[in-house]
């Protein structure tokens, strides 16, 4: 069973963070939401494993309610 990897994996973490932020530049909140949804779908398919996705969703939801 694949496991969600939560150790640091980026060669250059600051570059990745900037990529995310830059991709939303000049977008309205609505457009950003749309971009995020498409990004999530693309990445979820790339992972291709419902268990890993479920684990990621569980971790992401922690502290929200």
């Amino acid at each position: 069973m694949a496991k969600l990897m939560t150790e640091q994996r980026f060669a250059s973490p600051d570059d990745v963070y900037q990529l995310l932020i830059d991709s939303h530049r000049d977008l309205t909140p609505e457009q950003s939401t749309r971009l995020n949804a498409k990004l999530i779908l693309l990445l979820a398919n790339h992972i291709g494993d419902a268990e890993v996705l479920a684990e990621a969703l569980r971790v992401a939801r922690q502290g929200i309610e």
């Binding site: 939401t33 749309r34 949804a37 498409k38 999530i40 779908l41 693309l42 398919n45």
Partner: peptide, 23 residues
């Protein structure tokens, strides 16, 4: 609202991305 956002994102991606058609 978020359910609609994901639905519309699937439809938008489905035009060019084969994986999204299955959704």
């Amino acid at each position: 609202e978020m359910s609609r956002v994901f639905r519309d994102a699937v439809l938008e991606l489905a035009v060019d991305q084969p994986f999204a058609r299955a959704l």
